[in-house]
Design a protein around this nucleic acid. Sequence first.
DNA 1: AGGCCCTCGTT
DNA 2: GACGTACGAGGGCCTA
Length: 884
Amino acid sequence: MNDSSRPTLLLIDGFSMAFRAFFALPVENFATSTGVPTNAVYGFASMLATLMKEHAPTHAAVAFDLPGGTFRTERLPSYKGTRDATPPEFEPQVPLIREVLDALGVAAVDKERYEADDLLATYARLGREAGMRVLVVSGDRDTIQLVTEDVTLLYPRKGVSDLVRFTPDAVVEKYGVRSDQYPDLAALVGETSDNLPGVPGVGPKTAAKWIGVYGGLEGILDNAEDVPGKAGQSLRDHVDQVRLNRELNHLVTDLEVPLTVEDLEYRGADAVAVHQVCDALQFRTLRERLLPLVTSDSAEHVPEEPDEVEVVTDGALAAVTALSGPVSLHVEGRTGADADAWAIGVSTGDQAWGIDLTALSAAEETSLRAWLEDDAVAKTLHGAKDGWHALMARGIDLAGITGDTQVGAFLVNADQRGFDLASVLQRYLGVTATGGTAGDELDLGLDASAAHAAGSTAAHVGRLAAELDAEIERRGMTSLYREVEIPLIGVLARMEHAGIAVDRERLGERADGARARADLAAAQAYEAIGGEVNLGSPKQLQEVLFERLGMPKTKKIKTGYSTDASSLADLQAKSPHPFLEALLAHRDAAKLGQIIETLAQAVREDGRIHTTFSQVVASTGRLSSKDPNLQNIPIRTEEGHRIREAFVVGKGYETLVTADYSQIEMRIMAHLSGDEGLIEAFRAGEDLHRFVGARVFGVDPDDVTPEMRSKVKAMSYGLAYGLSSFGLARQLSVPVGEAQAMMDDYFARFGGVRDYLRTVVDQAREVGYTETILGRRRYIPDLTSTNRQRRDIAERVALNAPIQGSAADLIKKAMLGVDVALRDQGLASRQLLQVHDELVVEVAAGEQDAVETILTEQMHAAGDLSVPLDVNVGKGSDWRAAGH
DNA sequence: AGGCCCTCGTT
DNA sequence: GACGTACGAGGGCCTA
């Protein structure tokens, strides 16, 4: 099969694969600093590098479609007619791909009036006849017909890196017909992407069956009268369509080709051209993967791949425990409820070791534990918190975490997707992990043992850390990384490990109440329309509201008209109906019931809920919480609020204490803007919204009505989110003019805020990023987008990121301060939760006053702002009572 | 089973 | 023509 003596011809459908790459890689993450999108180029080049390396073809060509029609559209103008227009970001990448091909020395071919597939078909035949092994790479199913013993199709399953090999056997297995019969099958079934309808009621199974019985399409059509059943009648009704389909899906194999097969010989890349192209496209890691394709005679300055670090397992324990750091560490294991660790890997850069934890004697484990728990041994991991949990399951309290390549990669660019090790290695080192997709267990090959794999991974993490440290330093985020994010890992790990106690009975009561209210509301809703519908189905609700009841249309959404709460409230105002009222009540109760159910099912055997906090999700730098999310427990409605009564102080502790920042984002805005009026308001300690309301409406603070206050409050917060007068008007249900007037008045009194908001966006556009108080950067390339909508969104992001991000910085610093203070004072009380501007602490007996003091002091001390940071503290036996 | 859409909870 | 940040989670529903 892999006989290397035969020449190999690699044939690629350029558009098809570039298109796949375009949709596989988010365009917003791939652009040059000048805003040229490069995701399709990147994905295509990456795929090509892999193919060249794996298959080492002697000949290669990439075929392109040309603009304008083909003989197929001449025959049938609607051919491929349903295809959406290509996205504007895609088009400009096609010439770039041709440039890359040129640099790599890979032939690009095209032909007027024919599709790339026809060129592939013709070259496949020519290659076959020349005795070559042929590989066709295409995402177009029509190319299945090319498969023979000599021609293998590589068809993308997902993205462009996951290619399925279609050999003759694989085609039969997948479709139940031979590759040469596939066009017959496709003609019957139809091809949506080509806008060729098939025979209604006939799917691949039926088509394959018929082909088996009658030997092929001709046989089927000759015997059409005898084909039984409904499908048979359907076939007879669509014979013309089927014939047309078959005519169009036949690929031309005898084209006059622009280059001979011999001309396609691959002679290798041109080093200078590859460097030029990579410079222009700002490809860093891809450069390293493309350069090996350079032929030896032009390869003078090609840096060599660093040698794979040798992994030692024999005598690893003794070697590792003798190390005093710094090292990179990898833990093979699971996190979560069934946490466990079974192997670790350690690397110093020159050398790596792997240790099987399951095979250690008691004495060995003691010695390893001492090393892992030694704070003086500096360790860098990828996802250190996960490693901590896995080791904690074995009673090991990992210490000395001084680096985390996952957190580091997030700081470098928070808007990228995927911070699992495989993705980050790929991104920064160009290392491709095999076996399993990103996110799955990483397998860098070599040896099957977990210990060996751990050692190899540790070595990779070490190389990654060196790269990322430099990137972080370049961006001025070293102190944020070393002094905030890294120390926070241990704090979060302990919070997750502690969990928060839940009173299951109380939770059960709330669930019962919600269920009863939901049932009642549902009954009333059915009564109101004289029948049952699924109240949880927006689709069915649309049918009831807008068709059966003929209500006025609400705002448009992708699938019709919205049935969300605000739309329903509008409807109720315009055309009152008992159904609407019951529906809203049902929504409310059902949602609560659902939340409670999720929480109840998350309670572990210890009677506590252990959420998982992530430092690498929210681009602004906030934490996120999941499984379950404890940062969105209801508070606004009475019934929702009562859920918090089920979060209680645990056994052995006395109270829960909550401490939250008062109006933290407004204070940060006052600080960042330096607006004297706003700063004065906070310094005076007045009610902010009353103070602002007085200025905006030109009345005495005492004369600010509750209504004025709430309007001003909405506006103040809205400004930090980039709210428009339109949005404010809608939120306040006032005319746009009134909202605009309010904003004008606001800016007239608080000019510093207006100037700040303007400056922050302009500066971000200039330098490409925003920055928080602690120097956290967020890159926002869309600020220079020519697409109005994208740019508008980017501007709102730029407004909000420094404010929300600075608030995140401050509370993270506060958490570190609280942690240190609790420890320094030898207290048993512990932090349990963080909800963006609030901390929840479980207080041990006799520590109440000390804890309250620590919280207040540390939260105050987190920021040195031009306005005071107010902190509210509350206590109680449950979360609701502790709140305020 | 997996993914998209809608809806909705928090800050 | 759109128009407020940042998330996570569940159900419905379509596709594979």
